[in-house]
Nucleic acid binder design. Structure first.
Length: 769
RNA sequence: UCGGGGAUCGUCUAAUGGCAGGACCGCAGACUCUGAAUCUGCUCAUCUAGGUUCGAAUCCUAGUCCCCGAACCA
């Protein structure tokens, strides 16, 4: 049983299940096979498959292959491999949008037959021109009103291959003046005389995404179709297609799929668009889709990132609708956390410096047995001889005060072996070329008989047995957090994202096969490249360095990103954009009744701002007038209307809520009379907006009548304080803010039917020491 | 310009009218045969202004800023 991570989507699903809208959960991951999957897709995969897992539902893997000129079978295979590698299994076979071309076409003919679609002969340019723009409505196509029979004939001719590419399209007949540009007669089918990787030459017309996607979902019985934020505007069209094809395929769309959008992953120091990734590959700025510098799943896999780390990362960053740019340090954290647990330890030096131990017998080798990992049984043999290689940066001639490594005259421990002391520096032309030192043979295994502890421990390898190996040091692909913020992203590429070094590795580790994780002690986590490693010729990729609180890598922007914004200067309103108040004022000028109502309310003592809001339209005025007739107290009425009812109706027109103006007036009268308290009134109003009914009857039914009985208040107060002894203690200790918690609890117990002031008083009474 | 979204520690994300919580990062300390890991502690946030309420991140009003949308791409 995995713990379910809550987010806005799980809330929606819970509500759907509770309301019976769906009885099962079916999601899908629908990539277009036109590129490799990247870590952004990994987030989506974890979401869709994770939801299916958490709700005992299903998740399909579906190739959205509706555009034959861009897609390729190789990508299909790569995508399957990546999803499986991430640890997910899809329901049944892999699906293909192209599997549904027949029913999609049938539905298109039905749309034409219903008069909901037509064949348009305008060219691309004309269609674009006639679509209008954000500020201008579109104009109807000259072919928009063609008779149905002719449209049907043309569509069939399109399908039969009678027209060359680009000569005509099938369009939905919606509204060329629609504020959502996607709804201005969107294209449904275009002609492409192209070979499709699955359907071959069967089709020469292919459906557009907005038409195909909802049908794919519906045909597969998807309940929750989850996509990214940029598709928000497409949702309206998604629903239109479903609404207008619901009878065409003999399917009831039950449950009808619904689209929900979440924020896609933005990750620092990399790029995530398929186009840019493709460009990096095609221009050979990286070595293919699986280059370990790439944010592709294939690249991360080859680098040595594990599926567990990626899944942890997906959990860590969560799912929401905020546009976000995730700190790449979070990914790095997940990688380290995972590798820390699993990686055996080994030693290699990247930049060797020789240390001759002058008191060690010439030609003698001691073989030490060390565990692959502290506390675990598996061991390895590590040779130790007269010449030792240490890391160049582990020696300093002029060490700082807190130096914990080697320097002249100082003793350090060689990890798992002996204590050594440096006695002399060997130079050539002023350059340090080696070190002379002595070893304490009584410290074998790293423990001194006398219990002394050297200041530091460093890693090392034996010079005569060390194995040459290629070390590939990977770093962030770009030098700035947002390489594609503006302009060209290529100049931001990090030239040091790959550094190749010739290192010296202990022999046991050098024999590890490709695809093995290891922590090179004090250096980082490494992965033997599964492609480049040959037997006896190891190539090691650095997955990620160890966290380093001592030295900071040069040339890298330090620490956490600080994207804090300067408080922006309020922009002077140069554009004469009309605000909502101005719209209302304008409408009042145009409509005498509104103006009259405004004057009338003002005369009744309603605050001008409130009067402005109440005279937004005639519907509101009529409602308010009816309320006024039932309860002639304009201030109270307007407060309840504006502050509570306005929020409760959630944008629905007044006519659609089961509460009319007169009843609303009666409701306010009831509260004003003191028979119902304000908090109870809020509950009551919420009930009336949802269910309708008579306020007095509802009050009685819900038990919301005011409790004047101070015994009851005190009893509830005592019960609450008894149930929250810790809080009561803290309150007495001075945490004033807890009073609200108590009031809330008492009010809840009394169903809001007590006066808050009385409750407060009772609490203070009881709580005073 | 129109339509649709969004705004909470530096970053990501909770809190659904009642104690602004967690994680990453950072800082300090403990421990350490890895300057790692581990452990402890600390710093740090509700876009602004009004209003409703005993009580507002949450409800109302006005404003500000950010993102997406005008491929025969998905």
């Amino acid at each position: 049983m995995t713990t379910r991570r809550a987010n806005f989507l799980t809330e929606i699903i819970d509500a759907d299940l509770a309301a019976g809208r769906v009885t099962r959960v079916a999601t899908r991951f629908p990539p277009e096979p036109n590129g490799y999957l990247h870590v952004g897709h990994a987030k989506s995969i974890c979401l869709n498959f994770g939801l299916a897992r958490d709700y005992n539902g299903t998740c399909n893997l579906r190739m959205d292959d509706t555009n034959p000129v861009k897609e390729d079978i190789d990508y299909v295979h790569a995508i399957q491999k990546d999803v499986a590698w991430l640890g997910f299994s899809w329901a049944g076979e892999v699906r293909f949008a192209s599997d549904y071309f027949d029913p999609m076409y049938a539905a298109a003919e039905q749309l034409v037959a219903q008069g909901d679609a037509y064949v348009d002969h305008q060219n691309v340019e004309e269609i674009r021109q006639n679509r209008g723009d954000f500020g201008r409505p579109g104009v109807d196509s000259p072919h928009r009103e063609r008779p149905i029979a002719q449209n049907l004939e043309l569509l069939q001719a399109m399908r039969a291959g009678a027209f060359p590419d680009g000569t005509c399209v099938l369009r939905a007949k919606i509204d060329m003046a629609h504020p959502n540009l996607l709804m201005r007669d969107p294209l449904l089918y275009r002609i492409r005389h192209a070979h499709h990787h699955r359907t071959g030459d069967k089709w020469c017309i292919y459906p557009m995404y907005d038409y195909a996607h909802p049908l794919e979902d519906a045909l597969e019985g998807i309940t929750h179709s989850i996509c990214t934020l940029e598709f928000e505007s497409n949702r309206e069209l998604y629903d239109w297609v479903l609404d207008h094809t619901r009878n065409a395929l003999g399917l009831a769309w039950n449950p009808r799929p619904r689209q929900y959008e979440f924020a896609r992953l933005g990750l620092g120091y990399t790029v995530m668009s398929k186009r840019k990734l493709l460009q990096l590959v095609e221009e050979k700025r990286v070595n293919g889709w699986d280059d370990p510098r790439m944010p592709t799943i294939a690249g991360l896999r080859r680098r040595g990132v594990t599926p567990e780390a990626l899944r942890d990362f997906a959990d860590l960053i969560g799912v929401a609708k905020n546009n976000s740019l995730v700190d790449i340090g979070k990914l790095e954290f997940c990688v380290r956390q995972d590798l820390e647990k699993r990686a055996p330890r080994a030693m290699a030096v990247l930049q060797p410096l020789s240390l001759q131990l002058t008191n060690w017998p010439l030609g003698h080798t001691d073989v030490l047995t060390m565990p692959w990992k502290t506390g675990e049984p598996a061991t390895r043999q590590v040779p130790f001889g007269r010449e030792i290689l240490i890391e160049r940066e582990d020696f300093s001639e002029n060490p700082p005060a807190d130096w914990k490594r080697l320097s002249v005259g100082k003793e350090v421990r060689l990890f798992g072996a002996f204590f050594v002391r440096c006695t002399e520096v060997v130079r050539e032309d002023g350059e340090i070329v080696g070190l002379l030192g002595t070893v304490d043979v009584d410290t074998r295994g790293g423990e001194a008989q006398d219990g002394r502890q050297p200041a530091g421990t460093i890693h090392w390898v034996d010079a005569t047995h060390a194995v040459d190996c290629e070390i590939r040091l990977y770093d962030r692909l770009f030098t700035v957090e947002q390489p594609d913020a503006d302009g060209d992203f290529l100049p931001q590429m990090n030239p040091d994202a790959l550094q190749v070094l010739q290192g010296q590795m202990e022999p046991a580790a050098a024999e590890l096969p490709g695809g093995t994780h290891v922590q090179l002690m004090r250096v980082g986590y490494f992965f033997s490249d599964p492609v480049a490693t040959d037997p006896g010729k190891p190539v090691w990729n650095r997955v990620i360095g160890l966290r380093d609180t001592w030295t900071k890598a040069p040339g890298r922007q330090e620490g956490r990103p600080d994207r804090r914004k300067e408080p922006t200067e309020a922009k002077k309103d140069t554009a004469q954009k009309k605000n909502r108040a101005e719209w209302r004022a304008e409408r009042r000028t145009a409509t005498a009744e509104l103006a009259a109502a405004y004057g009338r309310y003002g005369a009744l003592g309603v605050d001008p701002d409130a009067a402005d809001l109440l005279t937004e339209d005639l519907e509101t005025v009529a409602f308010f007038d009816a309320a006024l007739r039932a309860h002639p107290h304009p201030q109270a009425l307007s407060r309840w209307y504006l502050n509570d009812l306005e929020g409760l109706r959630k944008g629905r027109p007044l006519a659609e809520i089961p509460l009319d103006g007169a009843t609303f007036g009666q409701f306010v009268a009831l509260v004003d009379s003191g028979q119902v308290t304000v908090p109870a009134g809020k509950q009551l109003l919420s009930h009336l907006v949802a269910k309708g009914g008579d306020p007095v009857a509802a009050t009685r039914a819900l038990g919301l009548g005011k409790v004047d009985d101070s015994t009851a208040v005190y009893a509830a107060t005592d019960a609450v304080l008894a149930a929250l002894p810790g809080e009561a203690e803290r309150f007495r200790a001075g945490e004033q803010k807890l009073l609200g918690v108590f009031i809330g609890a008492v009010l809840k117990q009394l169903r809001g039917s007590a006066d808050a002031g009385a409750v407060r008083q009772a609490l203070l009474d009881r709580l005073k020491t």
